[in-house]
């Protein structure tokens, strides 16, 4: 690229990054504010963090978010993987129908899925709360797990499992020792998607929960009606954790590669 073009693109990306990170920076800065104001910084303090840790409804919503995300991830990853393996051996008609239905919650606007579930739970007379929230999260997580496991199964050599069976393995052994290890990357990325979908979900959770069971998103939504800098404190903690995890995940392979290179040089 020409130098002038390079400067333009650098400038463009810088402006874009300011746009991307301004709200995040803003949240972090104002979480340390001494006053309640969201517009003027009065000085450094940790009072909103202290307040957050003493706010039982906030702590409870963090607890529910994490526990729902963990349970929904575990269940949807297991069910999704089993289904994907079954689907890879199923007739094309069944495969097609299941895939089409799975696309519904992904392609539908979230609010449509949300009201469908709301009416469904009440038609069955299930009380809204922890159970409905968990069921709903499992429901919208499984399609993503299937979507991320299926491509790995398609590229799998079908003869491998057959060979295992011919050599005397039970179907269960063939599944656990031959198929699952090979599709592990797909399972892991499916689980990651499921976790973040569940952790961040607002719309569906907002409609299907009740009985005082709230997650972080619902809490932010209901609290945002009046000024509450504790939200900034909580957000800052989430931002720090996510940034740390993403940086580690992205940098770890680079460090590993460098170390391996060093070892290669030494030997």
């Amino acid at each position: 690229m020409k130098p002038s073009k390079k400067i333009t693109s650098k400038l463009y990306m810088t402006v874009l990054m300011v746009f991307f990170y301004l709200p995040i920076l803003y949240t972090v800065v104002f979480s340390f504010n001494t006053t309640r104001s969201l517009t003027h910084f009065g000085g450094f303090s940790l009072r909103w963090y202290e307040k957050m840790f003493h706010d039982s409804s906030m702590m409870q919503s963090i607890f529910y978010t994490v526990i729902i995300a963990v349970l929904a991830t575990i269940i949807s990853t297991i069910v999704g993987t089993i289904t994907a393996i079954g689907l890879s051996k199923s007739k094309p008609i069944i495969k097609n129908v299941v895939n089409q239905v799975n696309d519904l919650p992904i392609m539908n606007p979230e609010i449509v899925t949300a009201i469908g579930l709301l009416m469904f739970f009440s038609a069955l007379g299930i009380k809204k709360g922890f159970g409905t929230l968990l069921l709903a999260h499992i429901m919208f997580c499984i399609p993503y797990v299937i979507l991320s496991v299926s491509p790995k199964l398609r590229s799998l050599d079908p003869n491998l499992a057959d060979a295992a069976l011919d050599l005397g393995a039970t179907p269960w052994q063939a599944l656990i020792k031959v198929i699952v290890p090979q599709i592990m990357p797909g399972i892991v990325s499916g689980a990651l998607i499921a976790f973040t979908m569940s952790f961040d979900d607002f719309i569906i959770s907002y409609f299907v929960t009740g009985n005082g069971v709230n997650n972080i998103s619902i809490m932010v939504y209901t609290m945002s009606k009046r000024v509450n800098p504790s939200i900034n404190a909580l957000s800052t903690i989430i931002i720090v954790i996510i940034t740390a995890v993403l940086v580690i995940v992205n940098i770890a392979p680079i460090i590993k590669e460098k170390r391996e290179e060093k070892e290669r040089k030494l030997t």
Binding site: F20, T196, F202, S217, Y221, N232
Partner: peptide, 25 residues
């Protein structure tokens, strides 16, 4: 990484931040 990082942070949290930024003062 810079582009995807914000998407991992809760949408409501990020929208809430804009409320402060865009306020009259």
């Amino acid at each position: 990484l810079l582009i995807t990082l914000p998407t991992w942070i809760n949408m409501l949290v990020r929208t809430y931040a804009w409320m402060g930024i865009l306020q009259d003062d």
